[in-house]
Lab assay of single mutants.
Amino acid sequence: CETCDRYISGRVLEAGGKHYHPTCARCVRCHQMFTEGEEMYLTGSEVWHPICKQAAR
């Protein structure tokens, strides 16, 4: 997992080739988790909900 550096077994979320436990992938702006299939916007090592990234501009 990109966030906690632990092995992932079971469900995995992926953004930009990086992998996360579903509970570790959180938006840097709103701190909410991502749901399965939800779009993730990756900037460097930061993961955003698209609407949060747009609002931060």
Rank of each mutant, 00 (worst) to 15 (best):
C1R: 11
C1L: 02
C1G: 02
C1V: 01
C1W: 01
E2R: 05
E2S: 13
E2L: 06
E2Y: 15
T3K: 04
T3H: 03
T3R: 05
T3Q: 10
T3M: 08
C4E: 01
C4T: 00
C4M: 02
C4G: 00
C4W: 00
C4F: 00
D5C: 10
D5F: 05
D5Q: 13
D5P: 00
D5A: 08
R6C: 09
R6W: 01
R6Q: 12
R6S: 07
R6M: 07
Y7V: 14
Y7F: 02
I8K: 03
I8P: 03
I8F: 03
I8T: 03
S9W: 03
S9I: 07
S9Q: 12
S9H: 05
G10Y: 01
G10D: 05
G10C: 02
G10I: 01
R11N: 13
R11P: 12
V12I: 12
V12E: 12
V12M: 11
V12F: 06
L13N: 05
L13M: 11
L13C: 09
E14L: 06
E14S: 12
E14Q: 09
E14D: 06
E14F: 07
A15F: 15
A15L: 15
A15R: 13
A15D: 06
A15I: 15
A15K: 15
G16K: 14
G16A: 03
G16N: 12
G17M: 06
G17I: 00
G17T: 03
G17S: 06
G17N: 11
G17L: 01
G17R: 03
K18E: 01
K18N: 04
K18Y: 00
H19V: 06
H19T: 11
H19M: 14
Y20P: 08
Y20D: 00
Y20G: 04
H21R: 00
H21C: 11
P22M: 08
P22I: 10
T23L: 05
T23I: 03
T23V: 05
T23G: 10
T23C: 06
T23A: 11
C24L: 01
C24V: 00
C24D: 04
C24E: 03
C24T: 01
A25K: 15
R26T: 12
R26I: 15
R26D: 02
R26K: 14
R26L: 08
C27L: 02
C27D: 00
C27G: 03
C27M: 01
C27R: 00
C27F: 03
V28D: 08
V28P: 14
V28N: 14
V28T: 14
V28Q: 10
R29H: 11
R29C: 13
R29L: 04
C30M: 01
C30P: 02
C30V: 01
C30I: 02
C30A: 01
H31Y: 09
H31A: 10
H31C: 09
H31K: 13
H31E: 09
H31T: 11
Q32W: 04
Q32I: 10
Q32T: 10
M33L: 11
M33I: 13
M33H: 15
M33V: 09
M33E: 07
M33Y: 15
F34S: 04
F34M: 11
F34V: 07
F34I: 06
F34N: 06
F34H: 00
F34W: 02
F34Q: 04
F34A: 08
T35E: 11
T35F: 06
T35R: 14
T35N: 08
T35V: 10
E36D: 14
E36S: 05
E36Y: 15
E36W: 03
E36H: 04
E36F: 06
E36L: 06
E36M: 05
G37T: 10
G37E: 12
G37W: 07
G37A: 10
E38A: 08
E38H: 06
E38Q: 10
E39Q: 09
E39C: 05
E39D: 13
E39F: 02
E39I: 02
E39W: 00
E39V: 03
M40F: 07
M40T: 11
M40V: 07
M40P: 15
M40N: 06
M40C: 09
M40I: 15
M40Y: 15
Y41M: 13
Y41S: 15
Y41I: 11
Y41V: 13
Y41D: 15
L42E: 15
L42H: 04
L42P: 09
L42Q: 10
T43H: 11
T43E: 12
G44P: 07
G44I: 04
G44T: 08
G44F: 04
G44Q: 08
G44E: 12
S45C: 09
S45I: 07
S45R: 06
S45K: 04
S45F: 07
E46Y: 04
E46N: 12
V47N: 11
V47Q: 05
V47H: 06
V47E: 01
V47M: 10
W48S: 13
W48C: 12
W48E: 14
W48A: 15
W48P: 06
W48Q: 14
W48F: 07
W48L: 13
W48G: 07
H49G: 02
H49N: 01
H49Q: 01
P50E: 10
P50K: 08
P50R: 10
P50W: 04
P50V: 12
P50I: 08
I51N: 14
I51F: 07
I51R: 11
I51M: 10
I51S: 13
C52V: 02
C52F: 01
K53D: 13
K53T: 04
K53Y: 09
K53A: 09
K53H: 12
Q54H: 04
Q54S: 11
Q54E: 15
Q54R: 07
Q54W: 05
Q54A: 11
Q54G: 09
Q54F: 14
Q54M: 11
A55C: 01
A55F: 09
A55R: 08
A55H: 14
A55K: 10
A55V: 10
A55N: 15
A56K: 11
A56T: 06
A56S: 12
A56N: 13
A56E: 13
A56W: 04
A56Y: 05
A56V: 11
R57T: 14
R57A: 15
